[in-house]
Amino acid sequence: MKTKVAIIGSGNIGTDLMIKIMRMSEVLEMGCFVGVDPESDGLKRAARLGVPITSEGIEGLLAMPDFEAIKIVFDATSAGAHEKHDRILREKGKTIIDLTPAAIGPFTIPAVNGMDNLDEVNVNMVTCGGQATIPMVAAVNRISPVIYGEIVASIASKSAGPGTRANIDEFTETTSQAIEKVGGAKRGKAIIVLNPAEPPLIMRDTVYCLVGPGADTQAIEESVQQMVTEVQSYVPGYRLKQSVQFESIGNNAPLKIPEMGDEFTGTKVSIFLEVEGAAHYLPAYAGNLDIMTSAAFRTAERIANRHHQKEAA
């Protein structure tokens, strides 16, 4: 028996997630697609596909005749709206998967800590940049403690909708926190770049990790490769652009990091990534959106399976 889910947010992310569920899932079933603009492409597409829809937001979802049967609700709106949605849905006993940077629930990266939060009421999918880069920070950290981790996520301007643009500050803050809490870095920093190039460029990410002297570079490279393979299990277009780069930072030219308030000597690890989307609904260059929906999709399936196991026990 499939688990019924609802998606709040009829924009690019919500629509792509709906299509993934309908095409690919053996355990999830669309119960409702929720928006606020009856003319949105997402709602019109959902209606054509036979999915129950409402253009009256969370209130419309609550009024749906099949609302009680819905077990999991994805929120693909904004950080501000999610606070209200979380409060209402908790009272109704729903499990919430948050694709906004609200960070109310624990940070969840499927390749890193994807099995840890399956019993939580609300799980947060961090950000697109976090989903792409934090696995790399974690891969380095499990070999050699990361003293400082910095990520730069470059996405096509066309792939950044109103929700993304309204949440830039939350993006950097949430991602920075998750670099530390999930990636394991002592200190994290996140930067996002909206690239206006035409034709639009595919998502690119750069990850810098500073580790202590004497790091086992071969073990780090192997760990990174293993993590890439793990992420590819749910995001096939995730790949390294080149070999992992290592640079020794000596006492003669230490790095000065204002955020750390100290000089650094040791090894600088540089990882360069590319994320190509599956193009289920979004263009292939929008890997930033695809990795979010793919991570949320993987997490929802794990939660649904967990619920089924509990019911069978």
Rank of each mutant, 00 (worst) to 15 (best):
L240E: 03
I88S: 03
Q226I: 14
E263Y: 12
Y238D: 08
I88P: 06
V121K: 05
E56L: 13
F264R: 06
A160D: 00
T206H: 00
K181F: 12
N117I: 03
R90A: 12
L99R: 08
F33C: 06
Q225F: 04
I109E: 03
N113C: 08
I249H: 12
A132Q: 13
I70V: 09
A278C: 13
V211G: 01
P254V: 00
V123D: 01
A312Y: 03
V73D: 05
E56M: 12
D37L: 09
V182T: 05
I88M: 12
G277Q: 07
E198H: 08
S243H: 13
G114D: 05
A63G: 11
P110S: 10
I303G: 07
V152K: 02
A313D: 15
M24A: 14
K256I: 15
Y148C: 07
V126E: 07
Y285D: 01
A304R: 07
M30R: 05
Y148K: 06
L89E: 01
E259T: 05
C209Y: 07
I72Q: 04
T133F: 04
F107T: 01
N113T: 06
E263Q: 13
V224G: 01
V235P: 04
G237N: 11
D216Y: 07
N305T: 11
G188Y: 03
R298C: 02
H308D: 11
S243R: 14
P101W: 00
T267Y: 00
Q226W: 12
F67W: 02
A253I: 14
A46D: 01
M292R: 13
K94Q: 10
G50A: 11
A156F: 03
G129I: 05
K310A: 15
A47M: 11
Y234M: 09
S144D: 00
S270I: 14
I155K: 07
D169P: 04
G35L: 01
E301R: 12
P213K: 13
T299I: 06
H308N: 09
D37M: 09
G287P: 02
D216Q: 09
R87Y: 14
P52G: 04
G31C: 02
P52T: 09
I19K: 10
A46K: 08
R45A: 05
D41E: 15
N117M: 03
P135V: 00
L273G: 03
P106N: 04
D66I: 07
D66P: 06
G266V: 01
I155Q: 03
G184C: 00
T95G: 10
N141P: 12
T3C: 08
N252S: 14
V5T: 08
